[in-house]
Computed example of a mutant assay.
Amino acid sequence: MITMSPASSNINSTDLDYYCTETPTVAIIWCVLGVLCACVGIPASVWLLWVLVQRQRSGTSNDIYVVNLTVMDLFYNVGTAPSMINYIAFRNHAFVLLDEILYSFSAIGRPLFMTCMCMDCFMAVVYPITYMKMKRYRYRLLSCAAVWGITPCIGTINAFIWYSPIPGALYWLLVPTIAICDLAILYTLRKPDPSGRSDVHPQKQRALQTITNSFVMTLVCYLPLMAMGPFLRLMPASDQVKFCVISLLVYIAPLLGGIIMPLLQLHSLGRLRGLLYCTRDSGSSEQPDQQL
C-alpha cells in the first residue's frame, strides 16, 4: 500500500523523487514485504471473518467491532499487492490517489476501531453496572458507521492536501487513549477475586486476550508512526533520504498490522492451535515412512 504519497508526507516535497529511483533499496524491500504481508493477511482475514460470522450465527459472540475491523483489514490487504505493483512498474498517479484512500483503512480506520473496542471493554470491566444499562447495540452501530464515514474522508484529505496534520493529531489522541485504556482494564482484571478464588473466569480470560492483542498492535504498528512525526523534520538528512529510507522503514509497521491483528484474533479463538496440532500430527505420521 502506498503509505507515503506526497500528499501525506511530513517533509518538503519540492523536487522530491516520490518513486525513489535513485535510492530504490528500501522501497523494493518495502514492496516485497507488502506483497508477502498481503499473501498472508488475505487468507487470515477471510478465515477470521468466517469464524466470526459463524460465532455470530450460533449466538456465542456479538463483537461487531472485531467483524468491522476484520473487513477493513481485508480491504487493506486486498489493495496492497496491486498498489506495490503500481509503485514499482506502472506508476499511475490516479491509482496512487485512490490508494491513499485505501491506505486510510489501516492508518486511520484500524486505530479508530481499536479505540472503540478498548472503550467498550473499559466500560464493561470498570463500570459494569453503567455498561449493562446502556443500549450497547445501538451505540456500537453508530460508532461503526462513524468510523466507516470518517476513514475515507481523512484518506481523501490526505490525497489532495499537502502536510495534512490530521493523521498525526489522531495518533497522538488515539494511541495514548488505547494504551491508558488497556492498562486500566488489565489492572482491573488482574485484581484478586473477592471470594478468594485463584482461577480465572473464561470470559475474563478472553477479555485479557483481547486487550493484550490491542496493546501489542498499538505498540508495534502505531508507536513508530507517532514517534516519527515530530522528529522527522529535526533529523540531519536530506528530504530524499527522509522520504525514501526513514519514512518507508517506519511505514513497514502498518503493513505488519494487516497480518498481526487477524493472526492474534485467530490465536485467541483457538484456531491456530488446532492448525499447529494438525501440522504436528502430519509430521509425526510421516516419520515412520521416512525411516522405512
Results as ranks from 00 to 15, higher is better:
Gly258Leu: 06
Val35Gln: 06
Phe105Lys: 11
Ser143Met: 15
Leu142Thr: 13
Thr70Val: 06
Asp193Glu: 12
Tyr127Trp: 04
Lys135Tyr: 04
Ile161Leu: 14
Ile166Val: 11
Gln203Cys: 07
Cys144Phe: 03
Gln209His: 10
Ser247Glu: 13
Ala44Thr: 03
Ile185His: 01
Leu276Tyr: 13
Arg140His: 14
His93Val: 15
Ala89Cys: 10
Ala184Thr: 11
Tyr137Thr: 12
Pro165Thr: 05
Arg271Pro: 12
Gly109Trp: 05
Leu208Asp: 00
Tyr163Ser: 08
Cys153Gly: 02
Phe75Val: 15
Thr210Pro: 00
Ala253Lys: 07
Asp281His: 02
Ile178Trp: 02
Leu141His: 06
Gly168Lys: 08
Tyr65Gln: 01
Asp99Ala: 03
Ala27Cys: 05
Trp47Glu: 09
Gln240Lys: 07
Phe95Cys: 01
Leu142Pro: 01
Pro82Ile: 12
Gln203Lys: 09
Met119Leu: 15
Leu186Phe: 08
Ala227Glu: 13
Val40Trp: 03
Gln291Cys: 08
Thr218Ser: 14
Tyr19Pro: 02
Val71Phe: 15
Tyr171Val: 05
Ala81Gln: 03
Pro165Leu: 07
Met228Ala: 09
Val78Thr: 07
Met114Glu: 13
Ile260Val: 14
Ile29Cys: 14
Asp99Thr: 08
Thr21Phe: 10
Asp73Thr: 09
Gly283Met: 04
Leu276Thr: 12
Val200Asn: 04
Cys221Gln: 14
Gly34Thr: 06
Gly149Asn: 10
Val78Met: 09
Val175Tyr: 01
Ser268Lys: 01
Val245Pro: 10
Ser284Trp: 04
Ile161Pro: 01
Tyr76Glu: 11
Tyr277Cys: 07
Met261Ala: 13
Cys39Gln: 04
Val175Phe: 01
Tyr87Ala: 05
